[in-house]
Computed example of a mutant assay.
Amino acid sequence: MSSLWLMFSAAFIAATLLPGGSEVLLVALINEAADSWLALVLAATIGNTLGSVTSYYLGSLGRFATTPEAMAKGRYRHSISLIQRYGYWSLLLAWMPLIGDLLCLLAGWMKLSVVKSTLMILIGKGIRYLLVAAIALHWL
């Protein structure tokens, strides 16, 4: 049970603006207890998703601190155009290093649907952790 909390916590922290190696931890924990791979994947997915939803809410609070014009002209313009073009579907990429955190922040800033955003984040992160687990278990 403690390994599940460890996995959840590491995945949560890795999804916020702090860097982390939750995939490495997942592989290590699967190597220790291969029979609990599904519980570990679920803990990682839920923790990482909740971390990204935290970023989403931080982004929604930032709406009042920065004008849309300043955001659209600054370094965020490419990510903003990605979200404007694909909407909440772009959040399937929330698992990607660097861009994922920014996409979640901007989704909140742009007031995308929290339910749809959370669902897309969950799906993208779940697929990533399933792939990591499959590699650790030598399924791929």
Rank of each mutant, 00 (worst) to 15 (best):
M1D: 08
S2N: 04
S3I: 13
S3L: 06
M7A: 10
M7F: 02
F8D: 03
F8Y: 11
A10P: 00
A10Y: 08
A11I: 03
I13W: 10
I13G: 09
A14T: 09
A14E: 13
T16D: 04
L18R: 12
L18Y: 00
S22G: 11
E23C: 09
E23K: 03
L26G: 04
L26Y: 04
V27I: 15
A28F: 11
I30Q: 05
A33K: 02
A34K: 14
S36V: 03
W37D: 07
A39P: 01
L42N: 00
A44S: 07
I46S: 01
I46V: 15
G47A: 06
L50Q: 11
S52P: 12
V53H: 04
Y56S: 06
Y56L: 10
Y57A: 13
Y57N: 05
L58A: 10
G59F: 07
G62N: 14
G62D: 10
R63C: 02
R63N: 00
F64W: 00
A65S: 10
T66L: 15
T66F: 15
T67H: 12
E69N: 06
A70C: 00
M71E: 04
A72T: 01
K73G: 02
K73T: 13
G74M: 03
G74E: 10
H78V: 13
I80A: 14
S81L: 12
L82Q: 07
I83H: 05
Q84N: 13
R85C: 01
R85P: 01
R85I: 02
Y86Q: 12
Y86L: 15
G87H: 11
G87C: 10
Y88E: 15
W89E: 01
L91E: 11
L93G: 08
L93W: 09
L93Y: 02
W95Q: 06
W95P: 14
M96Y: 07
P97F: 07
L98R: 06
L98G: 04
L98S: 14
L98H: 06
I99V: 14
G100I: 04
L103Q: 03
L103Y: 13
L103F: 09
C104Q: 01
C104H: 02
C104Y: 02
A107H: 02
G108Q: 12
W109C: 09
K111V: 11
K111G: 07
K111W: 09
K111P: 06
L112A: 07
S113W: 05
S113D: 10
S113Q: 03
V115N: 08
V115W: 05
K116A: 15
K116C: 09
S117E: 01
S117G: 05
T118L: 00
M120F: 15
M120P: 11
K125C: 07
Y129K: 13
L131E: 05
A133F: 00
A133R: 03
L140M: 11
